[in-house]
Amino acid sequence: MLSRVAGLFSARGYNIDSLCVAETLDPKVSQITMVTEGEDDTVEQIVKQLYKLIDVIRVTDHGPDNHVARELALFKVRTLPDSRAEVMRIVEIFRGKIVDVTPDSYAIEVTGGAEKIQGLIELLTPLGLEDVTRTGRIAVARGL
């Protein structure tokens, strides 16, 4: 299924900014969350093209608003004795968690919007940021 969706995007020249695949409440159904960009008519065309795939059950265009979106990021920071406390303070401000500690590193978990994660990247870079792994955005519509 993923190859059909990804193939559709590449064949028709649509961008994939991020893509996240996971199981749903029904184990036979999987959910793909994608972030793409385009004018309204492009997005309309993307939705229609996705519906044309035989296995697609439902397509929801979350649009720019009216949904809650989050992303999970895992950071690895090289820690020096004089920067450990500063890293911890920043993580706390960002409501992140330190999930692994070694004598010279922290692994940090943070969720949030893209700006928040970008902000944290900028703050941690001078303090020894080694690596970031991001899930890409997932979203849920507001209300029922």
Partner: peptide, 8 residues
Amino acid sequence: IDPTSIRK
């Protein structure tokens, strides 16, 4: 019959 043909 194909919605993707319309306004493509």
